[in-house]
């Protein structure tokens, strides 16, 4: 049963993530965090962080990570299969159509309308992650602001946007600074 659920959830991720890269992220969040509660928002954010630091598509990384945590190695296999199954079917059909007709203008035009929607969905998922970074609990209030996280975010955003720093380097530095500043502020844990 859990195998079927995993397969079905990641099938939807594979089927509706169009445009690559981050396009899968809002779909994974809606399935895994909101739909089934398989991961908390914090675990999901960790997953995206890990996916960003390791090779491989976010969808395949997430399918493996979630599958193995929910149902072991079998879970990882069915979830990954679910996430590539739509590609296998659709890409092979479109490849045949493509070689027959060369250049599908109508498809491009439909995709042109999807693009702004995908940008909006990624923005929304990104803001969800940002909220998780800036507020240490679900309640939004000044007393719950994680100032270290907020300052790190702003600094990282500026160096990425203005100085075009390498994303992986920026994230690694954020990790190191997060550790250093928290140790300075709160002392050794425990």
């Amino acid at each position: 049963m859990i195998y079927l659920q995993l397969f079905w959830s990641f099938l939807q991720v594979g089927l509706f993530s169009i445009g690559g890269g981050y396009a899968a992220m809002p779909l994974i969040e809606s399935q895994v965090v909101q739909g089934h509660g398989w991961l908390t928002m914090n675990e999901f954010t960790d997953l995206i962080t890990i996916a960003e630091m390791t090779p491989g598509p976010i969808a395949v990384n997430s399918a493996t990570f979630v599958g193995i945590r929910i149902a072991g190695v079998g879970g990882a296999l069915v979830a990954t299969l679910g996430c590539i199954a739509p590609s296998l079917v659709i890409v092979s059909i479109l490849a045949k159509v493509y070689y027959k007709y060369k250049g599908a203008k109508s498809l491009d035009s439909v995709l042109a309308c999807l693009r702004p929607a995908v940008v909006a969905l990624i923005a929304s998922a990104g803001l969800g992650i940002l909220r998780n970074v800036v507020f240490s609990s679900n309640a939004l209030g000044m007393q719950n602001v994680d100032w270290v996280g907020a300052v790190l975010f702003i600094a990282a955003f500026v160096v990425l946007r203005k100085l075009k720093w390498n994303p992986i380097l920026t994230m690694a530095l954020c990790g190191a600074l997060g550790l250093g500043v928290n140790l300075l502020l709160h002392g050794l844990p425990g």
Binding site: G149, M171, L173, C174
Partner: peptide, 14 residues
């Protein structure tokens, strides 16, 4: 602590 810092980074990247 490292992961928490990296989360701030990934939010910025996205």
């Amino acid at each position: 602590m490292v992961l928490r810092g990296m989360q701030a980074g990934v939010a910025a990247v996205i």
